[in-house]
Design a protein around this nucleic acid. Structure first.
Ligand SMILES: [Mn+2]
Ligand SMILES: [Mn+2]
Ligand SMILES: [Mn+2]
Ligand SMILES: [Mn+2]
Lengths: 223, 223
DNA sequence: ATATATTTTTAGGGTAGTCTAAATTTTTTA
DNA sequence: TAAAAAATTTAGACTACCCTAAAAATATAT
């Protein structure tokens, strides 16, 4: 009864609603969805009516939407597939972390529960994807670690680089060129009061300057 | 100019036309395509007009269709992807050869040239898929080995099992239960004149009876 | 508390791919 | 070689997803 297949498009909507809704499950607006799906608000309204009819979202006109438990389950399955495929692309095929997002965006819609589980086993049950994002387990449990944004770190603190907020290839390539990779030790040496740019030391070696724009997109962990 | 993306559906049509057209490139009928695509003839006609407009097939009304060089290139790329993904599923993820067809049917439509080439490298440039079908190379060369059907083998001959004509899970599972796998040595001990069933010895060990239906779907090579 | 601005929905329509029923063309049979 | 049968195309329609323009509801500002 609940087994009817969701389309590629429906899965993308659910994943985006999950992401915009955040951990608190706040209502997502039609315009925000239009922006994220690169469609028009009118098209979003059509889709929302359909997702509501299928019981995947809570929707009252003009009130924004939230995922139902059923919709949340679907969204998390898609996220699990996306992140597992990203691990495969980076770890097994040798792609850079800046190259895998768009491909995983397609692979995440391949059906077959058993495929996902065999892939997970093949990859050694990874807990995080190449961008530091947590991978939901087979039961659908997704626990977001509470990392700190680098802008909240004080001068003198040493932290571990754990993830990124911006997944854009240009940002990831910029980090590559700076030697800032997942697991790197970052020590904040100085923060410029004027523009909040920072001087940081990477792995006890090279010191470099990073802009506020970069700091805002780096997730780190105190040790 | 030639770079416009083909849809999932168009790719399936091209692949099926390639397969039904055979090595000699004979015309494929509308009804044959309706059968293979599980659609109605009227739907096929619509699609044929579209494929012809895109220059992917030669089509004259009521005359059947053939692939153009351009269409052939697309079909072979899809076949390459299908077979490489099947190798991945069997060799890396541990699927049985009877379980991979439907999944590969989806994976074959994932775009990205570079993904295919990295997958090919990861798999060690396999020449054949798990069913013994040849994998086109990166340049689009597809050379069909000329295997013999087991029904053409005489009593007393020893041959190597090289492939299957029927890819149905039930047939492949039947072969598994009989111990007939790719590379197995098959010696024809006896052929029953009445129903053309045969008695064959596998790998110099067990002798078993196989029906004409099975023999007709086994591709072998004389040694 | 209105008036204005913004957001969202509705109305009407388009393309891709599918369908059934009817018309047309080709093939087979007598 | 003409009638019957089979194959194919055309006509008209449906669903999924998307669009623009206009209407309606909500939010903001005066
Ligand atoms: Mn996607
Ligand atoms: Mn990721
Ligand atoms: Mn396919
Ligand atoms: Mn195969």
């Amino acid at each position: 009864m609940t087994s009817m297949q969701n389309s590629f498009t429906e899965e993308n909507y659910l994943k985006i609603i999950h992401s915009l809704s955040g951990r608190e499950g706040v209502e997502v607006s039609t315009n925000a969805l239009a922006e994220s799906t690169s469609t028009r608000a009118a098209s979003v309204t059509d889709m929302l009516r359909k997702l509501a009819d299928k019981g995947l979202i809570h929707y009252k006109k003009y009130q924004g939407v939230r995922l139902t438990d059923s919709g949340e389950k679907v969204a998390i399955k898609v996220i699990r597939k996306h992140r597992l495929w990203e691990v495969f692309l980076v770890e097994k095929l040798g792609f850079g972390w800046d190259e895998v997002h768009d491909i995983a965006e397609e692979l995440e819609h391949i059906p077959s529960e058993i495929l996902v589980e065999k892939l997970d086993t093949f990859l050694g049950h990874p807990r995080f994807d190449p961008h530091g994002d947590p991978i939901p387990d087979a039961k659908g449990n997704l626990t977001e670690p509470d990392y700190t944004i680098l802008t909240d770190i004080q001068v003198g603190e040493k932290v571990l680089m754990m993830g990124v907020l911006d997944h854009a290839p240009s940002f990831l390539q910029h980090l590559d060129r700076s030697g800032i990779t997942l697991g790197a030790v970052i020590e904040v040496k100085e923060i410029n009061e004027y523009d909040k740019s920072a001087s940081v030391q990477i792995n006890g070696g090279q010191t470099l300057f990073i802009s506020l724009e970069v700091s805002k997109n780096l997730l780190v962990q105190r040790r």
